[in-house]
Nucleic acid binder design. Structure first.
Length: 376
DNA sequence: ATGTCC
């Protein structure tokens, strides 16, 4: 990465001046302290690689969570022109529509502080967790297709949550254009019994306490106050999204080879947005996105039921309310005005959440077993 | 991220 020159723009922006085949500059949003952590990291090189891709508009961007990922860096954001630009599964990520959901409650820390182990144990018992975990539902192919098309709206329609939850979810928990006919039988099979499961890696479901208020107005708007109990859920589209990513990487790589498209990294396999492969991927990606939103909606609902049972409180006294559900692994067709010109772009955003692994729950449970709080 | 190798 000797060719990478990082030019400081201001306190929080660093520019990679174009070199070689870069079509646009790269910009990394980061503090000086975080930048030091990137000195031996390949992710700035990945920002530069993305800048090579056809149809990229203005910049190859990276958010402060930048670190090494598949093809694009995690934290990478890039928009491509709809006429001559590309779409790339590596710009979305393996876990399509992975995201976070913050849920507020009416409880205060004092209401739960003596029962934390009981709560964690109950949640671990009720929420399927870990690699390959399966849920309580086995969807028929017909029902699974509904999940893929309707997303969190399917979940609410089937008793998991309320219309208010959908209002607090990005895109209402449903992205348009999903077509189950464009995903593989294997992806369908893997999705069949994993809806309503947390997964592994850095996925988590945790009990949180509002420790500090930094901005009174924002806190009031979100209905958050000091010492309030909240829940954060971080998860995605499980084996289904992973399989869709795999399937389309293979298909796009074949096409890249066939067309002789030159890429700085084979992990940047992509297709023109307007091509058959590009359109199929968008429709397949939307299926996984909707599956992930249904997944988070169901997990939130079950969390509420578990907390009600464990604390012996009514739904009204628990007062669960979705603050917001925002996803961080997705590509969207969106309208922008750039230098006065209206443009429709294919925007990739590939994010991450702080490392607070689901395995943390496993470790916690191991400790609970060790001190005799739970059996088995 | 992922039935971390169909």
């Amino acid at each position: 990465m000797s060719e990478i020159r990082l030019k400081r723009i201001d306190d929080y922006r660093w520019e990679i001046t174009p070199f070689g085949g870069m079509r646009v500059p790269g910009i990394i949003y980061s503090s000086e302290r975080l930048m030091k952590g990137l000195e031996k990291d390949e992710s700035p090189k990945q920002v530069a690689n993305v800048a090579h891709l056809p149809g990229i508009v203005r910049y190859s961007l990276a958010m402060p969570d930048i670190h090494w990922g598949y093809g694009f860096p995690i934290g990478g954001v890039a928009a491509f022109d709809l006429q001559n630009g590309i779409i790339s599964p590596g710009g979305v990520g393996y876990d399509i529509n992975c995201g976070c959901r913050l849920v507020a409650t009416k409880l205060k820390y004092d209401d739960i502080k003596d029962r934390l182990e009981k709560l964690v144990t109950a949640l671990f018992r009720d929420i399927p967790t870990g690699v390959g975990s399966t849920g309580v539902l086995k969807l028929s192919p017909k029902e699974e297709r509904r999940v893929l098309v309707e997303g969190a709206q399917w979940a609410v329609k089937n008793g998991y949550g309320t219309a208010e939850d959908l209002e607090a979810t990005e895109d209402g928990g449903r992205i348009e254009g999903a077509d189950p006919d464009r995903i593989s039988a294997r992806a369908m099979e893997r999705g069949r019994d994993q809806v309503g499961t947390l997964g592994s890696g850095n996925h988590f479901l945790e009990i949180e306490i509002v420790r500090d208020i930094y901005d009174d107005k924002v806190a009031a708007a979100f209905g958050l106050e000091k010492d309030q109990v909240a829940i954060m859920i971080h998860c995605g589209s499980r084996g289904l999204g992973h399989q869709i990513c795999d399937d389309y990487l293979v298909r796009m790589m074949k096409q890249v080879n066939k067309l002789g498209i030159q890429l700085p990294d084979r992990q940047l396999a992509c297709a023109y947005v307007q091509s058959e492969e590009g359109q199929d991927y968008l429709a397949a990606m939307a299926c996984a996105a909707n599956y992930a939103w249904a997944n988070r909606q169901m997990l939130m609902h079950w969390t509420g039921e578990t907390l009600q049972r464990a604390l012996q409180v009514s739904p009204r006294d628990l007062g669960m309310r979705l603050v917001y559900d925002v996803c961080h692994n997705i590509a969207k067709i969106e309208d922008f005005t750039i230098e006065g010109a209206k443009m429709r772009l294919c925007v990739h955003r590939k994010g991450a959440t702080r490392a607070f692994p689901a395995n943390h729950i496993s470790r916690k449970v191991a400790r609970l077993k060790a001190v005799g709080c739970i059996k088995g």
